[in-house]
Structures are given as C-alpha cells and as structure tokens.
Nucleic acid binder design. Structure first.
Lengths: 343, 343
DNA sequence: GTGAAAGCGCTAACAA
DNA sequence: TTGTTAGCGCTTTCAC
C-alpha cells in the first residue's frame, strides 16, 4: 500500500490567496453577520478551488464545542438499540452533529470506560441506556457535574435529575390486556418478567388495571413469574394448563416469552387464536413471520432515539446539565394486532 | 435545569502543583520511556486528585491523530449492520479508538455528506458498506487521496485499490446446495436475487458449482429470478409447482425469500422437510423461531466487523492508504442446519 | 466590515 | 530525565 501525501488546506492558505486575514476567512465560512457578501463569495470560491475541509478538531479546541454526541448502549447487536441509534443518528445528521458509539456489554465497568472516553473526547452531550445490573449511577453523575448534559433512554434510573425517554409500559400492558378482553377472551393470564426491573413491573401493573377497568377479577395463579425467555413462556403454559380452570389467553411480558407460549400451545394442539389468544410486547421482527403472527406492542424505538436527541439538544443549547424542570418524554405504546389474538 | 460550572483540569494545573513543566506531565501521562518512575507516580497521583481527564481534542490537534474511526452503514436499523458495528466497536474499545457512526440511508448523497463529516472530524480511517445504488465511488477515492485510509465491508466495489472484507458468497451457495444434495434431495431449485449485485450472482454460481460437483444437471427452469423478498419466494414456489417435473428442494438466495418459500409450501400442504427441503442465507434471527426452523448460511457479521477494524488499523499504523499489496479478507460462510432441510 | 493578537490544551523537537 | 519553545488550525475579543 502506498504512502499518503499532501497537507490539508487551512484558512491561512485561503487568506493568503485573497490578501485578507484568517479571521476574515473564518467569519466568511461561518456566515458571520458582519461580513461583506463579496468576501463571503470570494472565500467560498477559493475554499472550493483549494478543496478546503474545515478542521473540526481545531475549531472544537478553540470554541469548546465539538458537535459530537456520545451514545452508550448495551450492544449494537440488539435490534432494539440499533433502531434507537437509527433515530438518534438521523436527527444528528440533520442538526450537523456527529455520533460516537460505545457499547457497555451490560457491564458497569465498560460503562465507566465509555463515559471516560466521552469526557476525553469532550462530547457535547451523552445519551445512554444503562446496563442491566447498574444500580449506582455515580459515574454518570460525575460526568454531569463536569458539565456534560446526559439523557437516559429506555433503561432509566430513579434519579430524577437526569431527563429520560421511555415508552409507557403501564399503558402498553393495559392496551395488550384490554385488546384480549375486547376480543372476547374470558380468563386472561400474564407471564411476567423480573419484577425488580421497572419496565416489567409496569406491564404487570397495566395488566391488573385493565382487568379491573373491565370488572374482571385479578387472580394470583394467573400470573406466572417468568424470566424473559422462550423457556419461561413454555413453562408458563404447562403451569396454566394444569390449573383446574385454565386461562384462555395470555399476555406475555415480551415477545420471546410469547414465542415460547405459542410453541407450547401448539405442542398441546391448542388452536390460536380460536381457543387461545396470545399477545407479546416489543414488536420484534419475527412477530409477523411466525405462525400464527404474534400480536404485540410496539415501543416506538426510532421515535425514542429522536426524542432523546431533541432533549439533549435542548440542554446543550440552554447550557444546562441538571433536569431541574423535570423533563421527560413518555412515548405512547402502539398495539400491533396480528393473527394470534384476533378472532 | 441548572447551569453547568467548573473548568476542566489541564496538564498545566498538574504541572504547577508539582513544580514541573507541562511537557513533563504530558510525558508522564503518556508513559514516555524516558521519565522517572517517581514523577510518573506523582503526576498520576495529582491527576487523580484533581480529577483530570485528558483533552483529546487538543492532543489530536497537536499530534494529527484523533484515534477515531468513522463507520458508514446504510442503516443502523438493519440487523446485519448492527451486528457488524458490534464487532467493529468491540475491537475499537480494545485498541483505544472511538467509533463515529454515519448512516447513508442507501443514498449516495448522504454518503458524500458522511465522508465530508468524517474528513472534517479528521478521523484516522473510514470503514464503509456502500449504498446499494452507489456505482461511482469517487467520493471515497477523494477521501483516500486526502490521506484517509478506507476499508469496505460487505458492500464492496470493483476498485481494487481499496481493501475489503466480505463473506465468501460463492462458497455459501455451494455449501447450501451441497447440504441439500447430501440430505437426499434430487431436484434442487434456486430462487435468485438481483444479478447485478455481486453477492447474489456469486451465490448462484456456488449453486451451479455444487450441482456440477455432484454430477447433477443444471436446469434453467429451476432458477427463478427473484428480488429478495417474501413475495418472490412465494411466486417462485407457484412457478416451480407448475412445472412438469417440480423440484423437491429450494436454495433461496436469502432468508426472507426462503420464508416466502416456506409459507407458500405450507399453503400447498407440502411437508417440510419430508417432501421438500429449504435452505436460506443470512442466518436471520427469525430463522430458528419459524416452523419449521430454517436452515441457513451464517455470514459471520461480528467477525466481519472485527476483521474490517484490523485491516484499517494495519493501514493506519503503516501510514498507507492505497491497497497496493491487494489486501482483503474473505470470511468462511457457516452452514447452520435446522429442521427445514434435515430428514 | 476587516485586522491584529491572543490562546484553546496539548505534544514534539531540540536543548541541557 | 526534564525544561524551553513553538505551534497544530481555528475562533474570538478588541480595535479601527
């Protein structure tokens, strides 16, 4: 491979060509209000001819602004986060920001390293979805205390001083359950997720509320404590079918659990949706490809990314880092009715 | 939200505390070979106490190296690319690099903007998967001529001056077809993708080669020209079943096409894998969740990201931008046998 | 509307 | 082993 050559053109080079100073060139390039149209055009012409590319490193150093946003996600391999990043990056492009990515691998230590890397890079703001087992968020708070605004998305924290964007899990659970009720199912069960995670607890709460609103009794034995896996969906069905009065529908806390539910019901030759209704949560890609297609609750991932970006932009522009006016965005979950629950 | 405060600690601050110069502090922090262990430790201690974070913007400006890699992908929402980014980012973390993301949205104009943004940011290298309809890659070549090394992955280009990482599509097609032959299927058909895209043409070539190697005749009517969609899989089956001598197995150019094939076969009450074998390509997440689970060819996406990163690191370290020694990485495709083809 | 001068924070060449 | 000096390329007062 051959050596690289050439030195980049600077505003000095342009200045010399036009017999003006670098300051003037800088102003012209940045559309400073008090610059003559003539010089602006002359500068643009020469810049173009010399193939000038602004050195953002230098301008960042001088101005104290990098126009870079750092994003911490558990993993880029997870669909959900790829989708959110898509939303973030789309907005960033529009606003002239660059996006740095860092993966925590669900590990608090990596999270710390990521924040450190972002602080070194002097990012203008940080968007983060915290690792599953991160309880102590002091590393985030330290970054904030150094003046870097932070916004959480999806995986948030009780600390209210940090703005966040989430989907309304309570409402999602409510909608899913109500949908089953409206479809005429009479005994609706729930396969839950780990209750120490707020999102799962909220979905259960939504389930209960929907039952109550429709004057259906809440029965403890119709809630199976799962762990967000295909396996727990299967086990739940085994458990439910053993009950003296089994349910005729299940709202599963997320789609993989729902998948397990469907697999086990089919194993038992139970017809979906005729004899049994199933609803999941997350609107995973496979939902529409399995048989029967799975009704689910969409979490508006792309919108989540866009809203998170808007929040951080707001903080950057207002030069604030603490969420004193208690900003947050709660997105509406969207029910996606498919074959598994419609009869 | 409250105002931010404080100014960041600099090496000057540390220098003052210790009555040394900034240069010494810099050397100590960078583990310069000729620095005394005593000062190194003293510096480390004070840096820690003053909560120092190195300003990479400043060091980048001075050293001409940013330790940032730019990555251009069509969309972060697409699984495949999320997975590759995972590989890239994992390696980058390890090597102390940061990763900038830019989405082209399959649009050459966005691609140009992304490259421009990366040039401005003075990234040390660019990894890119080119947009589908990008034929002219002069924008990439210009960046390279400005001294920025470039590596393509997956979506490559005939221009041999740019190193690339791809999976061996020919071999993938060969393996998929051979697998069906080994499972005892006698008449194996193929649903192809757009032949102007090299990856799809290669898979067809692999299909033909496997037939030949096993002394099976290649029959034109057993290749259906699809367009990479569920629909084209369905249409292909309709076509094939209308033949005087229909096939008993299909190698589909990718998984969504295979999904359509399966759907249509089930529609026709044809038993998979007993009466009919199906193999796809890409190893999509849904493969193992549909019924029957779909045999597919894995493209080693994470490895692709890692290898791409290694290639660019190599170029950066050797300070070369042209691929004169014709570097490339061809990854081995991995057959993932599942229910749809095993009898 | 433009120029002059200073400096963001760091590193690297040259001295000592 | 450490200090001195200079400067990366840009923006931003303060002049005029």
């Amino acid at each position: 491979m051959s050596k690289s050559t050439s030195r980049n053109t600077t505003i000095q080079d342009i200045a010399k060509e036009l017999n003006v100073t670098a300051a003037t060139v800088s102003r012209a390039l940045n559309n400073h209000p008090r610059i003559s149209e003539a010089t602006r055009q002359a500068v643009a012409e020469v810049a173009d001819r010399l193939n000038y590319t602004r050195n953002r490193v230098a301008s960042s150093l001088r101005s104290g602004k990098t126009n870079v946003i750092g994003v911490i996600i558990p993993s880029a391999k997870i669909n959900f986060f790829g989708s959110v990043v898509h939303g973030i990056e789309t907005m960033a492009n529009e606003k002239g920001y660059n996006v740095l990515i860092y993966q925590s691998n669900e590990d608090t230590e990596f999270e710390k390293k990521g924040i450190q890397a972002f602080l070194s890079a002097r990012v203008d703001g940080i968007l983060a979805s915290i690792a599953k087992d991160t309880r102590d968020i002091s590393h985030y708070l330290e970054a904030r205390d150094k003046g870097v605004p932070i916004v959480f998305f999806d995986r948030t924290h009780d600390d209210t001083s940090i703005p966040y964007v989430v989907v309304d899990d309570f409402k999602g659970g409510y909608l899913a359950t109500e949908h089953l009720i409206n479809q005429g199912y009479k005994r609706i069960a729930h396969v839950s997720g780990q209750q120490h995670l707020k999102i799962f607890a909220e979905r259960l709460r939504g389930y209960k509320a929907a039952l109550k609103a429709h004057k259906l009794p809440f029965e403890k034995e119709l809630v199976f404590a799962g762990n967000v896996s295909i396996e727990s969906g299967k086990e739940a069905v085994k458990h439910f079918l053993g009950l003296p009065e089994p349910p005729d529908a299940i709202f599963a806390v997320e789609d993989f659990t729902a998948l397990g539910v469907i697999k086990e019901l089919k194993e038992n030759k139970i017809k979906i949706p005729e004899q049994f209704g199933v609803v999941g949560f997350a609107n995973e890609e496979f939902d529409e490809h399995i048989t029967p297609a799975l009704t689910s609750v969409d979490q508006q991932t792309v919108m989540m990314g866009k809203e998170a970006f808007n929040l951080i932009m707001d903080m950057i522009n207002k030069k604030v880092v603490r969420n004193v006016d208690n900003k947050k965005v709660i997105l509406e979950p969207l029910l996606q009715p498919r074959a598994s629950s419609q009869r």
